Simulated scan of single mutants.
Amino acid sequence: MSDNRLIEVITTNAQGIQPEVVSIIENEIKKRNLDPDLLNSLIAQNEQHSIEDIYHYAELLRNCPCPICNNTRDKLNGTIYHSIKSIIVMSITETRWIIACPDCLDKQNRKAIVSCSLLGWWGIPWGILKTPVYIYRNLKVKGENRISDPNGPLLSFTADNIGQIKAFENNPEKLKNVIKDLR
């Protein structure tokens, strides 16, 4: 396994790992001369986190520059982008996480609303049924883009990716890449 693949597995897929495997991974990290903080990521994925922990890691993400426009004046938040595109009997849906500044989040939600409004209705039956639901979901999450605290989508993303965030909490460039990789 390459170093990059090992780092990916350790930081994203280590939940439920057996305790005896931890020492094997620790030895492999040392043998390959990788960042020792990777072990913290593995441990973080296998322990319970308080809401205070999740808020702490969410604040680390909020202080990164916007991955879309590189804005550093506004704190980041999250949104979930829902889209549907339909052609007669076929509908294609997409749901994506986005972490960015409030202006960029608003643009992404607006883009999704316009896309759904123009392209979602044309499929039978799913386009007609799902389009209003997706428009509503985009409007609802858009309302959370500018709140002063970490919003629901950002907290959910943080909880789901706490291993990566913890592994790179002292490396702002890699932390920025955790967010950027969503796009």
Results as ranks from 00 to 15, higher is better:
N46W: 11
Q108T: 15
P172I: 08
V178D: 01
S156Y: 03
T93Y: 01
G127Q: 04
S50Y: 11
N71R: 12
R146M: 01
E26F: 04
T79H: 05
N63T: 12
V89W: 15
I128D: 00
F168T: 05
Y81E: 13
I54C: 09
I179P: 00
K107F: 11
L42G: 06
L175Q: 03
S156L: 11
P19T: 05
T12D: 06
I99D: 07
K180S: 13
K111G: 02
Q18E: 14
R5L: 15
G123Y: 04
D160I: 00
P172H: 02
N161M: 02
I99A: 07
F168A: 04
I17C: 08
C64G: 09
N4E: 14
Q108S: 13
S117D: 04
I54K: 06
I179T: 04
D181I: 05
P67A: 05
T95A: 11
K85M: 08
Q164R: 15
D106P: 06
S83R: 09
C64D: 02
N145F: 05
E8A: 09
R110C: 00
S83V: 10
S91M: 06
P153T: 12
N109Q: 11
D74W: 09
I92N: 14
S50D: 13
I80L: 10
A167S: 12
E52L: 13
L154Y: 00
A167I: 05
I25P: 11
D74Y: 14
G120D: 10
N71P: 08
I54W: 06
I51H: 08
I128G: 02
I124K: 07
S115R: 14
K140V: 01
I25A: 10
I147P: 00
Y81S: 07
L182T: 04
D181F: 01
V141C: 02
C101I: 14
I17Y: 09
P67W: 09
A112G: 14
C104H: 13
I179C: 03
N70Q: 12
V133T: 08
D181P: 00
K140E: 03
N40Q: 14
E47L: 10
I10P: 09
E173F: 03
R146S: 14
N161A: 09
I179G: 00
Y134I: 08
S23Y: 09
S83I: 12
I10C: 07
P36G: 09
G16Q: 11
I54S: 05
G127M: 01
R183I: 01
I51F: 10
S83H: 04
V21Y: 02
L154I: 01
D106F: 10
N177F: 07
V21M: 06
E59A: 04
R5H: 11
R96L: 13
N70W: 06
A100F: 02
H56C: 11
K31V: 06
R137H: 07
V133W: 07
V89M: 13
S91R: 13
Y134D: 10
Y134S: 04
D35R: 12
K31E: 14
R137F: 08
P65K: 14
C66N: 07
I25S: 08
D103G: 08
N138P: 01
I165A: 06
L182K: 01
E52N: 11
D149Q: 13
L105V: 06
L129A: 15
G152E: 14
W126T: 09
S2N: 15
C69W: 14
Q164I: 03
E47N: 13
N70C: 04
Q15N: 08
K75V: 10
T158W: 00
